[in-house]
Write a protein that binds this DNA or RNA. Sequence first.
DNA 1: CTCATTGTATACCGAACGGTATAAACTGTC
DNA 2: GACAGTTTATACCGTTCGGTATACAATGAG
Lengths: 192, 192
Amino acid sequence: MDNRERILETALELFYARGYDAVGVQEIAEKSGVTKPTLYYYFKSKYGLLEELLRSRGEPFLEALHQACVYRGDLKDTLCAAARTVADFAWKEPKFSILFVAQYYSARESEVYQAVRPLVVRLQKEIEGVFDAAADDLGNMHGRQRQFSLGFIGLVILYLIMKHETEETEGIAVSEQEIEALVHQFMHGIYS
Amino acid sequence: MDNRERILETALELFYARGYDAVGVQEIAEKSGVTKPTLYYYFKSKYGLLEELLRSRGEPFLEALHQACVYRGDLKDTLCAAARTVADFAWKEPKFSILFVAQYYSARESEVYQAVRPLVVRLQKEIEGVFDAAADDLGNMHGRQRQFSLGFIGLVILYLIMKHETEETEGIAVSEQEIEALVHQFMHGIYS
DNA sequence: CTCATTGTATACCGAACGGTATAAACTGTC
DNA sequence: GACAGTTTATACCGTTCGGTATACAATGAG
């Protein structure tokens, strides 16, 4: 692993554990086994490092989610596929996932929230797209697609956090049945 | 309003908007119309200010929640009462509520999380107590009270955030029907 | 009037912050 | 072996951070 990647990995570790603001550039560099100028050679600023971290880790996820969110004629199936993608990613990248959630819920005017903004927007667009495409199934949603997608995202996130809190293991494993139960619960709430 | 209260109010405002770490003591003092030594006269440190903010605002809420969580023979009723209490508080203290959520999901080793820890623990204890008391209704929960309570708390929080995102208004108003629908959805998921 | 307590302001501290100027090693190419 | 581009280290910058020593008003009690 080269220095650039090592810096990103260290930053993820530290941001995950203590948060962006509480971690100094100095410490990231030291724990990566490099000096500050090396860090600034690869990333133009501390904020740039965060952006690149979110971008590089988030891109594969959003790519996979985009595939999963192609509407295949059934809302439940599509939502299951989306949830499946999220769960898989959370299993592979637990620390990044938790970091993402923390920043998702952070203060709106903070740097950290500004940094996740692009990911959040794309994530919401994907899910909203599913509800738009499912208009025939669901009937008139009275423009509540946004509300539904926010709720769905929140529910999936909540489930992952719960898992992360409860499980002894490091990763977050979610079975197919759990995914289906989650989506079923969500849809039942919507239909009623 | 005296200086002490004004400092707390200003801190809440700023922490809510930009987060604890990103806000300096200097700014809190200036925006409160006092100088730094005055702030340190009332609170022994920046962290102490945060603790006092959480304590003073959180205490009334936990007190009300404790009343609501007295088991009255029916799980649904009790959960509705608890959700009602949360919703009422979120209506009265929207900024504090959002700040609480942000810190609830923040990095586990961060100062902010350490500071909300006491509130989180008491909140969870209250809800867990409901599920414990409802063992007769629910049957054997196989020690999943903790998981249920985490899920319930998360769901209520999620609902509030969703409201806060969606509504144009500042406060978060939740009708009785919405509360009941939320609890019903949660319990349906549990029973199935 | 005196005196202790509460409350506020001026001015300052050392440390840590994010960030950089400069230059020396490396690396592969010709 | 000279050269260009990449990568790293030393040493430093100005600023802001959380926090404080000191002194001066205000206040009410005796």
